[in-house]
């Protein structure tokens, strides 16, 4: 399959650290590039040689299934040499700092480093210390740009547009980098964004991001085209934010009776991994007419291929 190369438009950034840094031209460049890879990924011969001879290092400081494998696959399909660092067995466990790790890897002349880190701003720090492009695969609670881009691509694929759509993001907004990146991106693309969360899981000043804030799920879901559920990030909660999962499910779990307040053709999204029966009813998650959760994973590979290609140039 022939992949068109778009030489006319260049990305404005050296690194992909967050949606905040991107212009709408950058976003369209990535999304258009990604669209070309969707078909390729469905075809029998999936391998290209666009990144042949290039080295991609995946540096995941946090456990990850879909993002890490998605980036790994994306790199391999483009022909790059992909190395995934195993942090558990690395010098980081021996007390090496991020900057020293960065210098070490930099000396091996990679073309791309994909990093996930539990600390907000870790990718920014890394990007200051290496020569190659850095792609943020999630930093603390700050940003997860490729997730937001793949969510946008999924919405466009299904709804043919984002402009004018009403999109609800529900759940643990406080600890969520996915929510932050999505708010920036969906706002940029002209959607109306509703944030639905208990006050304890709503970050300070979120209204100033240009979103509507709700604590009542039924009100927040009213007439929405997209319902984006977030995972309750229990591992980041150091004290009591909620009484119990049971009560949370009752008030903030996505169930059919709550979904009825959204538009009839509303789509359900979730960045995964899901806590079934906590933030989402298990049958709804699997409902192929409503849930696009699997498609998100599928398009995730295409978006990451686009990002790797664009930021490697």
């Amino acid at each position: 399959m022939a992949i068109k190369s778009n030489k006319a438009v260049k990305i404005s950034q050296k690194h992909l650290l967050g949606i905040q840094d991107l212009s709408i031209t950058d976003v369209n460049l990535i999304l258009n590039e990604a669209k070309q890879f969707i078909e390729l990924n469905k075809s029998k011969k999936k391998k290209l040689d666009i990144l042949r001879g290039k080295t991609q290092i995946n540096l995941f400081f946090e456990p990850s299934t879909r993002t890490q494998s998605s980036f790994e696959l994306a790199g391999k399909r483009l022909g790059a040499d992909v190395m995934s660092m195993n942090i558990v067995n690395s010098a980081i466990k021996k007390g090496e700092t991020l900057i020293d790790t960065a210098m070490t890897l930099n000396a091996m002349h990679p073309d791309l480093i994909v990093i996930r880190h539990q600390d907000s701003g870790a990718c920014n720090l890394l990007s200051q210390k290496v020569n190659c492009s850095v792609i943020n695969a999630g930093d603390g609670r700050r940003e997860h740009p490729t997730q937001a881009l793949l969510d946008a691509l999924t919405i466009i694929d299904r709804k043919k547009k984002i402009q004018g759509l009403k999109i609800a993001i529900c759940g643990d907004i406080l600890h969520s980098r996915v929510a932050r990146s999505n708010i920036y991106l969906l706002n940029m693309l002209g959607a109306e964004v509703n944030i639905i969360a208990p006050s304890n899981l709503t970050p300070n000043g979120i209204e100033s991001f240009g979103v509507n804030k709700f604590t009542d799920m039924k009100k927040g879901l009213k007439d929405c085209d997209i319902v984006m559920m977030l995972r309750l990030q229990n591992e980041r909660m150091t004290s009591s934010y909620l009484s119990s999962n049971r009560e949370y499910y009752e008030y903030y779990g996505l169930t059919q009776d709550k979904l009825n307040f959204a538009k009839e053709d509303a789509l359900i999204m979730h960045p995964g991994p899901m806590n079934r029966g906590v933030e989402i009813d298990t049958n709804l998650a699997d409902d192929i007419n409503k849930s696009v959760i699997q498609e998100q994973v599928e398009l995730g590979v295409a978006v990451r291929m686009a990002c790797l290609k664009i930021f490697c140039e």
Binding site: S120, D139, R142, N204, I206
Partner: peptide, 20 residues
């Protein structure tokens, strides 16, 4: 200590943006 548990910057829109 409890109110500022794990906190490192002012609890404001800046904290929300930086994800701290």
């Amino acid at each position: 200590n409890n109110l500022s548990m794990n906190g490192i910057v002012n609890n404001s829109i800046v904290a929300t943006k930086l994800g701290l």
